[in-house]
Amino acid sequence: MPRVLIVDDEEHIRTLYKLELEDDGYEVFTEYSGLDLSAKVARTSPDVVVLDIKMVDGSGLDALQELRDKYYDLPVILCSAYGSFKEDIKSFAADYYVVKSSDLTELKKRIGEALESHIPNS
């Protein structure tokens, strides 16, 4: 069962994503903060991380930068209410960027694509 870590400071978003993704067969973990994200990833060993950008205690983009140093190939999907962060070069380090919506079709599609991506050894 693929494991998804949701990082979002809004409780209702975490609850919505958890319920919907569990219905789709994912094992879901939630965190309310992106601080010390590497440790949270080490603890939960997710196959994909869904990361909010604008959180009360810091930026998801900065958390992503820190995460990439340790988890080079871990799929990360940025999920934000704001489309404008897509133009920030830091967002290039994410697998996908999804604008938040109560309809999770796009997010679920991107999670599936991120899990499918594969580069073999040479």
Partner: peptide, 17 residues
Amino acid sequence: DFWKDVHRSKPTAIFGF
């Protein structure tokens, strides 16, 4: 033999702000 098994793409880290 390498690229035939590559599916989709992965991002590359960004350094230096």
